[in-house]
């Protein structure tokens, strides 16, 4: 009897949902105003890619991001080794950096196992000069939580992959496939206590960006 009762309740619940959907759509259709056309978005960019990189560096500085301009992965390794603390758990999703940190090729374990990662080094598809945001998708980081759960984050981006504004950014994203994607602009932060800026609210306390030639 109990299971029968439960089945009936679930059936009722389902009916409720189906009818809510139809009722909402019916009411919306009845009340929505006559069609208003979408605008054609046209924001011309007059500056040059070289200027975008300079603008990006200024922006990243304001976001408390450490920036290194490097010519190759060997230079990144040198910097990482100079600043490395032996007992720290450092992981990367960049094969070229596999000999200075633990290379994560694909998802093998539960994401919770990343809770003690001190430094994660990941690539970005591209960066945006106007706001310092780096576009990262799941395929570049393997674990979605990696850039958030790590104590410190480092992002490697090619200088040729800098755009100026968010309109150009979405032109680049258009048509690409991703299950999860995120713009990351600086370290995690909060100003909830009397508007005092504090870095490292829940996510990384610091962000380093390597601008690669």
């Amino acid at each position: 009897m109990v299971s029968g009762d439960l089945k009936l309740r679930i059936k009722n619940l389902k009916r409720y949902e189906v009818s809510s959907r139809d009722n909402i759509l019916k009411e919306v259709l009845k009340n929505q105003p006559v069609d208003r056309a979408l605008p054609v978005i046209d924001i011309p960019v007059t500056t040059t890619p070289l200027e975008w990189i300079e603008a990006l560096k200024v922006r990243l500085d304001l976001l408390h991001v450490t920036v290194h301009e490097v010519t190759d992965y060997a230079a990144i390794k040198t910097i990482l080794q100079q600043e490395a603390i032996p007992q720290e758990r450092t992981v990367t999703t960049i094969a070229e950096l596999g000999d200075v940190s633990v290379y994560i090729e694909n998802v093998k374990e539960d994401a919770h196992s990343l809770e003690d990662v001190d430094l994660a080094i990941i690539p970005a598809h591209f960066g945006v000069a106007e706001n310092g945001a780096m576009w990262v998708t799941e395929s570049l980081i393997q674990y979605r939580v990696l850039p958030f759960i790590t104590q410190q984050l480092a992002i490697v981006v090619n200088k040729k992959d800098i755009v100026y504004n968010m309109h150009q950014a979405y032109e680049r994203i258009a048509g690409t496939q991703y299950d999860f994607g995120v713009f990351i602009a600086g370290p995690s932060k909060t100003a909830d206590i009397e508007q005092s800026l504090v870095l490292g609210a829940h996510g990384p306390k610091g962000l380093t960006i390597f601008l690669l030639d």
Binding site: V107, F148, F180, G181, V182, F183, A185, K189, G203
Partner: peptide, 17 residues
């Protein structure tokens, strides 16, 4: 808040496995 963008703008499309 006068920021050019929030620190994270997360695009959720498909569930994780």
């Amino acid at each position: 808040t006068g920021q050019p963008i929030t620190t994270y703008s997360s695009h959720f499309k498909k569930p994780q496995p």
